[in-house]
Each structure stands twice: as C-alpha cells, then as structure tokens.
Write a protein that binds this DNA or RNA. Sequence first.
DNA 1: AGTTTCGATAGATCGCCACTATCACTGCGC
DNA 2: GCGCAGTGATAGTGGCGATCTATCGAAACT
Lengths: 301, 301
Amino acid sequence: MNLRDLRYLLALVEHGHVRRAAEACGVSQPTLSVQLRKLEEELGLTLFERASKGVTPTAACRRLLGHVRAAVAEADAIYAAARSLRDPLSGPFRLGIIPTLAPYLLPLVFAPLREALPALELEPWEDQTAALLDRLRAHELDAALLATEVEGPELASRPLFEEPFFAALSPEHPLAARARIAEEDLAADMLVLADGHCLRDQALAACGRAGALGGPLRAASLSTLLNMVAAGYGTTLIPALAAGAAQDAGLVLRPLVARTARTVRIAWRAAFPRRAAVEAVGDVIAGRLAGFAAAAAEGRI
Amino acid sequence: MNLRDLRYLLALVEHGHVRRAAEACGVSQPTLSVQLRKLEEELGLTLFERASKGVTPTAACRRLLGHVRAAVAEADAIYAAARSLRDPLSGPFRLGIIPTLAPYLLPLVFAPLREALPALELEPWEDQTAALLDRLRAHELDAALLATEVEGPELASRPLFEEPFFAALSPEHPLAARARIAEEDLAADMLVLADGHCLRDQALAACGRAGALGGPLRAASLSTLLNMVAAGYGTTLIPALAAGAAQDAGLVLRPLVARTARTVRIAWRAAFPRRAAVEAVGDVIAGRLAGFAAAAAEGRI
DNA sequence: AGTTTCGATAGATCGCCACTATCACTGCGC
DNA sequence: GCGCAGTGATAGTGGCGATCTATCGAAACT
C-alpha cells in the first residue's frame, strides 16, 4: 500500500468519478483506475461499485475512510512539520553551560538569544566540563559553553570571548589596599572550588600552585566561595562575569598584574547537522560580550 | 514520500543501526541507507546524525516521530479493518422492505438472520416500492424486499416465497359464512390501501377492478385497514403474513377460490459487490418461510 | 442510429527500488 | 604499528511497477 494510492482513493470518493479524480490527482484516468483496482486486490475487498455514470464507494470503503483520511493527514502533517523544522534555527537546542559561567552569563544572553533566534527553544543544562562533554558525545546536548579547549576529532569548538580573572578579597584583607594584585600574592590564602570545576584548576595554575589550600572546604559553587571570602576565610580568583555577584557579597575586586584570563568557547559535535544554530548562538553570545571583554581587561567592571 | 520509507525511518530510530534496521525491514543495508537519505532530501532536513558506530535521530526527527508513528499506525489500521471487512457477510446491510411486509415479516426473520449472519448489521428501511427502488439505485439501500417484479438491466431480483392472499371480513359480514370466497365477490365493498402501495394494485387486480372503493378512505397502513374492516366498513384482501394481525383485530379470514398470491422477492443492484450477502439474506428468509407458503396455500394459517 | 461519456484494457516506456560488490572510515586487538 | 572487524556510503545493474497513449465495450442521451 502506498500513500499515493490512499490519496487516489480519497479523490475518487470525493469526486465519484474516475476521470475527474484522476485530473485532480494530476494523473491519467487509466492510472487511477488501475491503481485503485490494485488497492482493492491488496485489501481483498471491493472499494467502489462501478456504474455507467460514475463510481460509488461501498460500505467497506466508507468504513475504511476514517483511517485513510487519518493516514493521509498524518503524512501531510509530516510535511508541514518538516517545513517548519527545516530552519536549523528552530526547534529545541540543548546547551550545556559550566557552573561558574551559567548563573552570570545566562541572564545576560537569554534575552538577546530569544530576540535574535525566536524559533530556537533554548534548553540550558548546567554541569561540570567533563559531564558536559560526555553528554555532548552522547547526543544529550547540542552544544556546550566551556572555558577549556576540547580535544579529539569528534568534537569541535570556537572561542566566543575572553573573560579576565579578578582577585576577590574582603575589604579588611591586607591586599585590598593595592590597586592591582599579583597572581602569586593571592596564593597564600586562596580558596578554590571543589574538584571537577575548571575554574579550580585555572585559579591554581594562575597562581603557580598545584594543590589547594583550605583543608576541608569543598565549595561546590562560586556563590559559596564568595561568601566564605566575604567572611574572611581567605581570598579567591573570580571570573569577570561574577564581578557583580562578588560586589553584592561585599567583596572588593582588584585586577591582576598578569591579566590572567580564560577563554569561553562553544563546543559541538563535528557531525552535528544544525551547525548553523551553533554558530548563531555563538554569534549572539560573542556579540553581547564583545564590549565586556575589552572593558574588563582594562579593569573596568 | 512513501509509507515504506516511514517504516524504514521507524526501524532506524528503534535500532539506531542501519544494518540491523535493514534486516528488521527485510531489505539490504544500502537500500535503507539510500531511501532514508532520499527521505531526508525530500523533507529538506537531516533526520539522523551518522557516526562511526551507529546513527542517532536528530531533534527534528524526534519531532516528526509522532506523526510518522501515527501515519504508519493508521495504515496498519486500514489493513486490519480490511481484513475484518473482507467477509461480505459482515458490515452494515441496508435492507428496504415494503410496509405491507415489514411489520409481519421482520419479527419472523430477524432472529434467524442474526443467528445465521452474526456479523451482518441489518438496517431495515420501510418504504413503498417506488421509493425503495429509487434508494436502491441511489446506493442508499443494499437490497430490498418487494412483492413486485423489478425491471431494467440495473437491478436484479430473486423470488423468496409465495404469499397467498386471504379475504378478511368482520365476523358479521354475510360472506363470513362461506369456507372459501371468490375474489370477485370481495369486490363489492373491498377497502384498499392508499396510492403507492403495491398491495392496493394487487388487491384491485385480483378482484378484476381498476378503481378503488371507499370514497375518502386513504389507509396508509394495513393496520388501519384491518381496524376499518373490523369496524364493519367493508372487506379487504390481506397477505398471509398479516393473518395473525387480522385475527388479533377480530377479523375472520377465508381462503380465496383462485388462490391468488403474491411473490415476495429480494432485489439488488446488478453491480452490487456483496452479492453473497444478498443471497445469504435471501436464503435465510426463504428458509424461514419455506413451510409457511405451503401451509398458507392450503388455507392453514 | 449516431454521439457522447463512462470506466476498463493493452502495450510501451521510463523511473525507481532493490540487489551485489565495494569503498572509506573508525576503533580495537595483537 | 598494522591488520581486522564493524560502521555507513557509494557504484553499477536489473527488474518490477507506475505511468502514459490509444483503444475498447457499454450505456445513456439526442
């Protein structure tokens, strides 16, 4: 059985006339005649009663009609849905974001993304880098915002913007008096995030240290870390986008002497077919953050 | 687009593996591979992301999946429905019956028909001969029970049983004393049905008369006629199956000298495809009435 | 009786779907 | 490091089937 045959059948029911039905279907009269007869043979029942002045659907045919119409309607729905899905910039888009970026970047870019890509249904997913890469490879994400390079032939990535780091201190901290702070000076009492956060490794690397301070402190979020620093437990290194949150927590921020920064990238599977959506999302984010990186680099927050 | 392609698509989604999906569909791997690619081209979107170890449906594909499943399910429903409709002895069967037959014949044959043809959904339709023939020609009836011959090449018919006529009289009527009554003797004060009833013409013909008696009497039903006769307004001729009703109305019945009878036939369109159903219905009715005709012919009621 | 109109049929053509054989790539194991 | 097995894609071919034009046979109308 064929959808084409079902359309022939519907046309024939509607017109009650082989020639006119054939014309409506854009085929010759014998074509429709033969195909209908084949359909009857396949189904094992007479669908039309032929008379000298047209054809009439049999009771059996009328009984099938509901299913036939439904099948054809579903097929049409497939075409219609495909038409609207054809735009790679429409449909769900699952975007992974690392935890040290998500709470500060998302509020900035959500509205611009919605405006630039109204048909794109953004589904943010917050998790650590390794988990995001796993989900990306497993097709559970369409793209991911990371602050590290990605490796392997399976994935690709593109830098979006530079995010400088700042020293975050309680106002009472001795270093708070300086206008700029050298990375090494922070190392003495720097608190860092728990294992798995790329920011942890980046902060440690920036200060030339391999292991972390802080004994039992296992801060799962930047927000926890900021509050600890505000309470006087130490210092820390924060990415520029978290500056606002740090100030809200009562910390003072100081630019770093070496101007250490991290590069935020968007990563995707090389084989991902909606490359255009990835690029568009990347463009919007990069555009929104274009001025930010330069300003932050100069120490303006 | 083709239902076959949709089945390929579903198999591929299910297996995530071209070879296994092809095997499940009973085709070779290249066949499924090529057809799927064509479907993608036709729909203008990528349905699967190909990787080295299998394929994964894209978001667009998952969006279409509902419609695809529905279309295939409806197609399967067509096959299933066709299977159950294949039996010509199943499904609706619209049977026309003339009014002088319906109320007396239907109660007799309804149960036997239901028993012999349980899948046949009998839909009786009571109307006069001419109307039944019109509806038959217009495909609004599948068959009709008549007491007249049918003409024209479009229709066919078959006799089912003989139904003798009886004289129906009030007990007080002078003729009621006779054991048999001559048709001509009834003519004097015979009441007949309104125009359009075949029984009217048959009764008049039997008594050798052209016009009707009874002035303003326009009995639309045999039941009216019987009550009129019972009330002493005249005599009438009734078909044997109405004998019970006549006796219930308090009439006496007498066989006719010339043993006039009518032939009840089943009629159908010559092109009607469910000929078997017509024959089966005819067989059941003829079988149920087999003894009746002989008994009635001998005057036994 | 001729004409028109209906659907069915015959025969030819072309396209597409299916096959086999093979390629290109990847990941794994020795 | 080099086969080997497994993946999907591609090439080339063959056959079936959908389609066409031309025609038929029947029926209805003029």
